[in-house]
């Protein structure tokens, strides 16, 4: 148990000590939100509402729509890149210090996943700084609800990261694999645009993408779609469904949680079998 805490603690200390990383991690989401979000917002409203700006679709605000997606993206990026530390530890030798100590491999893997998750939750929470500037109203209760959701997502994605990093030896190869993985997962998750009217093969990828359910959970907490007009909800792509069944929040928790469990078990097994 203490071994898990030690591994976790090291990653958290290093996260807060690394100022450039802390600041740099703001840059990407900020640019997406401001440049992409604000830039696209006019076009998006025009497409949805056409010249007819009356009716429920007039309320559509693209930046507001994107905000939960950006939080999802931040949590996702931070969590998956946290596994980079595993590869770096291999390169810089610290992994040997850990592996020759009497802590079990399982504890090391769990400590690493928890460290990555914690860091990702912090990063995600830091995105809430943008709240006052984009006109989303967020209550304290919503923030409290957001934290466990972020943690669940971060845990699942960190486990996926560890699973990938366990089989890789260099940071270059890790970054390569992650880049290839990140873009389709991000674009086909509904984080950046509403998932409406897609070709069926793409729709299939959307539905097997764990990030889709993760982002949708953030949307459900932040945008409160049940209070929206059905037409607007539809336009914003908030009626995520499988086989005509609209997926509930609880089901999403279940999906992400089960995936997380599978990933963490696979990652632990994979990690345990790797030699120093």
């Amino acid at each position: 148990m203490e071994g898990i805490i030690a591994i976790w603690q090291r990653d958290v200390i290093k996260f807060f000590r690394d100022r450039p990383r802390l600041i740099g991690s703001f840059a990407m989401p900020f640019m997406f939100l401001i440049l992409f979000g604000s830039g696209m917002s006019g076009a998006m409203s025009a497409m949805l509402g056409g010249s007819n700006q009356a009716g429920p679709l007039a309320d559509f605000d693209f930046v507001e729509f994107m905000f939960p997606g950006i939080i999802g993206m931040t949590v996702f990026n931070t969590a998956i890149f946290s596994a980079l530390s595993v590869v770096q530890d291999k390169e810089f030798g610290y992994m040997r210090e850990i592996l020759v100590s009497p802590i079990s491999r399982v504890s090391i893997a769990i400590g690493k996943v928890l460290g990555g998750s914690t860091v990702a939750v912090f990063q995600g929470l830091m995105m809430l700084i943008f709240v006052p500037f984009i006109g989303v109203s967020l209550s304290f209760g919503m923030v409290l609800e957001l934290i466990p959701v972020m943690f669940l997502v971060a845990f699942t994605i960190s486990s996926l990261g560890l699973l990938i990093s366990s089989s890789l030896k260099t940071t270059q190869s890790f970054q390569m694999v992650i880049q290839v993985l990140i873009f389709p997962m991000l674009f086909l998750s509904g984080a950046l645009f509403p998932l409406n009217g897609m070709p069926s093969w793409m729709n299939f990828i959307v539905k097997i993408n764990p990030l889709t359910y993760s982002v949708d959970m953030f949307k459900k907490v932040i945008l409160q779609p049940e209070q929206m007009a059905p037409a607007l909800r539809q336009a914003m792509g908030l009626d995520l469904s499988i086989f005509n069944h609209v997926i509930t929040f609880l089901e999403e928790i279940l999906v992400v949680g089960v995936l997380g469990a599978i990933f963490v078990i696979a990652a632990t097994i994979k990690f345990s079998n790797s030699e120093a």
């Binding site: 203490e2 071994g3 030690a6 090291r10 290093k14 810089f92 030798g93 040997r96």
Partner: peptide, 23 residues
């Protein structure tokens, strides 16, 4: 042969982590 210290941490933190790893 090669260093296995965490160079981003202090000497004390490196030693403290080791204490925890070895219980």
């Amino acid at each position: 042969q090669e260093s296995t210290l965490d160079e981003k941490l202090t000497a004390n933190e490196n030693l403290m982590l080791h204490c925890k790893f070895y219980g």
